[in-house]
Amino acid sequence: MATRPTMKDVAAEAGVGAMTVSRVVNGDPGVMPETAARVELAIRKLGYQRDDVARQLRRANQLSQTIGLMVDHVRDPFMAAIAFAAEDVARQHGSVVLIGSTRDDLRREREVVAAFTSRRVDGLILTPVAGSHRFLRPMITQGTKVVCVDRAAPGLDVDTVVVDNFDAVRGAVRHLMAHGHRRIGYLGDKKEIWAVGERYRAYQSALEEEGIDLDPSIVRHGLRSGPDAAAAVTEILSSAEPPTAVFASNDIVAIGVLAVLPPQIAFISFDDFTLADRMTPPVTVIAQDPIAIGATAAHQLFARIHGDTSPPRTIVMPTTLIIRGSGEIPGPHPQGS
């Protein structure tokens, strides 16, 4: 089995010292251009690659000044806001943030975690995908701090920053009921995702509290895009007994739904989104504060990195039902009937 070329091999090939190779690899502008070109040629010829793991090995208690942030998808505005806030806090602590997306794939999550740990991050802010996270335990045992954000990771005893999904959604469904609705459709992301599961459980609970039987024909799960959501709401509105109101589990689903939703159907979304207040009618939403959520998770992570050994805790952030009009469209049943 061939051995990887070393810095000494590159130095011998280029006819320079190992220190010069190190300076070129690390972008030192003080190296003469002719010498740097000779070293670069040797690097390409030998296929040398810098060993980031060895480079970042540190003495006990020495920090790498990096943290990892793993979100579902960086293009999701909610996740982007969390990343923005975490980066701001990290900067205050003299650290940088490495960001990766799982796209809700457990194997990809493992790959991103492995990439972060190979770079010896001091801690990890994780939006966990559905599934087991036991694979994180060795990393945690070895001292890497972990904080979950937006979603809990069942079975993992770490700090978690979430909102009260259950009470927020139960209140929103009861709000629709108070405006005369009994046929309330549910359109959601994958219910295996912890936060989404909590939202669906709240929807079920609100119906049960009012003695309303859950009708699977007006429920759809696993909606991961706007087109998925548009197709789903079109389908449930074509059923024999269509809903008079619809609840969407997140902003991505909501945007897809609103592209095709008739104006007489009441609607509430979990998550506010751009132009929600400019639509006709303006959209009633359960609003979260992703900046506060991301900043709280980052502050908690740095507290752990800098020595906080108190028991792991769950921090529950507030939500707000913003009443704008779409959730107040009257249904066929008078209040209290």
Rank of each mutant, 00 (worst) to 15 (best):
A2T: 13
T3N: 12
R4T: 14
M7C: 05
E13L: 15
E13N: 03
G15H: 02
V16P: 00
V16L: 07
G17E: 12
V21A: 06
V21L: 10
R23F: 04
V24R: 03
V24H: 02
N26R: 15
D28I: 09
E34W: 05
T35F: 09
T35A: 08
T35S: 09
T35L: 07
R38D: 08
L46Q: 07
R50F: 12
R50C: 02
R50K: 11
D51G: 04
L57E: 01
R59P: 00
R59A: 15
N61H: 13
L63S: 15
L63C: 00
I67T: 09
G68K: 03
L69I: 14
L69M: 14
R75P: 00
F78M: 03
D88T: 15
V96C: 05
I99T: 13
L106V: 15
R107G: 07
R110D: 06
S118M: 06
I125F: 03
I125G: 06
A130F: 01
A130R: 01
G131M: 05
R134W: 00
F135L: 04
I140F: 11
T141V: 14
Q142A: 15
G143M: 10
T144D: 08
V146K: 11
V149T: 12
V158G: 09
V162P: 08
D164G: 11
N165R: 03
H175D: 05
M177N: 07
G180F: 09
G188Y: 11
D189P: 02
K191L: 15
K191H: 12
E192C: 04
E192L: 13
Y200Q: 12
R201D: 14
R201M: 05
Q204N: 01
S205N: 07
A206K: 00
A206D: 00
E208P: 01
E209H: 06
E209Q: 14
G211L: 03
D213T: 13
V219F: 02
R220K: 10
G222L: 07
L223C: 12
R224W: 13
S225R: 08
G226D: 09
P227D: 10
D228L: 11
A232M: 05
E235C: 01
P242D: 12
A245L: 03
F247N: 02
I252F: 04
A254F: 02
V257Y: 04
L261W: 11
P262E: 01
Q264V: 01
D271M: 11
L275G: 00
P281S: 04
P282W: 12
I286T: 13
A287H: 08
Q288L: 10
Q288T: 13
A295T: 05
T296N: 02
Q300F: 00
L301P: 13
A303H: 08
H306P: 06
T309S: 13
P311L: 07
P311I: 09
P318C: 10
P318V: 11
P318M: 12
T319V: 15
T319H: 04
I322F: 02
R324H: 10
E328R: 05
P334N: 07
Q335D: 07
